[in-house]
Design a protein around this nucleic acid. Structure first.
Lengths: 93, 93, 93, 93
DNA sequence: AGTCGATTTTTGGGAC
DNA sequence: GTCCCAAAAATCGACT
């Protein structure tokens, strides 16, 4: 009831199967799948860049950290580091 | 030595900052950042498709499940074949 | 700031070091470390079972697959039922 | 269930099905499954400790970092931090 | 020394 | 808006 309210088959295109506008649904699913494929491809490209970097003698793990740090807001960064220092001091390195 | 085996700055382009070939590193980082931006854009597109679907009366949760299942089916199929191959190898052709 | 809202050291037990209730924190950390040790021990036991199986002529890779499949079967079953429930809700009992 | 069905224990010893000693295999698989269950239980306990810590106003994420740091060898730690500093300097925070 | 599987951490969505 | 759970990414470790 939350799912599909009133699929009016105006032009007779969308068939109702069990109350579900099957064609429309299929189209949506396919669009998503296509986008997810593109996304996976890019994820792959990223992996390759890391691989190549590694091949050139860089440490991929550290590069990841750099990328992550650049994404972070500077202020958040300072705060977190301070907090970590505090905890470390409290517990003993 | 684990990190950067001597990047000799032949043409004088890559400067050594603290032993790291800074220019090359910066280029790598920027490539990654660019790709990640593209990836984020696509992720956004996907979200929009879900939103739109929801606007058309579909339940996004179900669509997600359908997409996930279809992906899994493919994956499972591949896995089954792999397992079968393993068994065949185990038993001897 | 998000972290420790004013744990007032009532009985004087928990000392404040840099604003952190150090004793309590240390106790937490130690509990976790103890549990993680147990976990690592069990992981080791598992490894030994695989080793032993291998010693008896079994292929560890296949055993892993079998274990994984059996786990997945249970999980998939639950998921299928969930999806079915979703569809039923979508269609209206 | 899909994998190993109904091994009838005819003679009480290990029967060969397709060259595989099924009883022995089943025993191995069950031992592993039992151990994995124990492991999962402990993993759960750990989660609960984090939860409880969170309930007491601690930041679970930072505690995780503390635990991880304590696991690491001091020397390795220093090395990694130094390298990170290097990269950060090279790239610009 | 690289691939692959397992584990852990992070992110994102859903519910209240 | 905050908390919890599930999916994704990243890290770690084994075996080849």
């Amino acid at each position: 009831m939350d799912v599909l309210e009133d699929e009016v088959p105006v032009g007779g295109v969308a068939q109702d199967i069990g109350g579900v506008a099957a064609d429309q649904l299929r189209s949506i699913v396919e669009r998503i799948e296509r986008l997810e494929e593109e996304k996976a491809n890019i994820a792959n490209d990223i992996k390759e860049v890391y691989s190549e970097a590694k091949g050139n003698g860089f440490d991929a793990k550290i590069i990841r950290k750099v990328v992550a740090l650049r994404k972070k807001d500077k202020h958040d960064l300072a705060e977190e580091e301070e907090l970590l220092a505090l905890y470390r001091a409290a517990v003993g390195v």
